[in-house]
Nucleic acid binder design. Sequence first.
DNA 1: CATCAATATTGACAGACATCGATATCTGCG
DNA 2: CGCAGATATCGATGTCTGTCAATATTGATG
Lengths: 117, 117
Amino acid sequence: MSKSLTLTPVEAVACCSPLVSAPLTEEVADRIAPLLKALADPVRLRLLSLVAGHEGGEACVCDLNDAFDLSQPTISHHLKVLHEVGLLDRSKRGVWVFYRVRRDALADLATLIGGGL
Amino acid sequence: MSKSLTLTPVEAVACCSPLVSAPLTEEVADRIAPLLKALADPVRLRLLSLVAGHEGGEACVCDLNDAFDLSQPTISHHLKVLHEVGLLDRSKRGVWVFYRVRRDALADLATLIGGGL
DNA sequence: CATCAATATTGACAGACATCGATATCTGCG
DNA sequence: CGCAGATATCGATGTCTGTCAATATTGATG
């Protein structure tokens, strides 16, 4: 069973046929766009890449803050966006918070964009 | 040779290794984000899907306008965004303008997102 | 309990964006 | 040439978004 009645964008994309294979309905497009919006920021792209490339597949916020010339609240905001949309998993251990990339979500998104080519 | 010194976002993405395979540099992220921004709109997603699914792989603006409950200038604007970023090719024949999906661009983008999984 | 360090939330602000109506440009045709 | 239809551009407007400083929250530790 699902945790809520409203799907996260990540859950919404898992069930869709590729962009070029069948015409997207308005409803489906409305659920996919937020996922792409989350991805469509240079800082968030680098965050995702950093987390994915970190040892163990997860990274502590403390590691991420230093990688950017941005304030801590700004990084926290971007991580929240990625988490809310379902692209990052979040786990708190002690004072530290670790994020992990949802590879299945990325794979589904890639299929949506590039499937059927 | 390229037409200009500045690459379109589509040209920029063609040369990149997947998001999760290597850390994205700031420069690369800055060039990829506009491409994703162009995709990250429900109307543009549906436009892309409609064009891709149209017979002959291309669609006339006149066909596209009717598919939305939006003004003609708005559709024109969205098509321009997709064209400028390199996701749509544009060809004028008589009074009509036809758009065609750059499938290579979509494929490259999919590799960037989902490659290495 | 008091303090400190890590992370998140809030509120403000400037810039970006989606949309529209009005208008301009282009092209075929009479 | 002049009109009509297709598409693009312009200017305005309301909304969304990225960023920051300030502050709150959370958890470990003395």
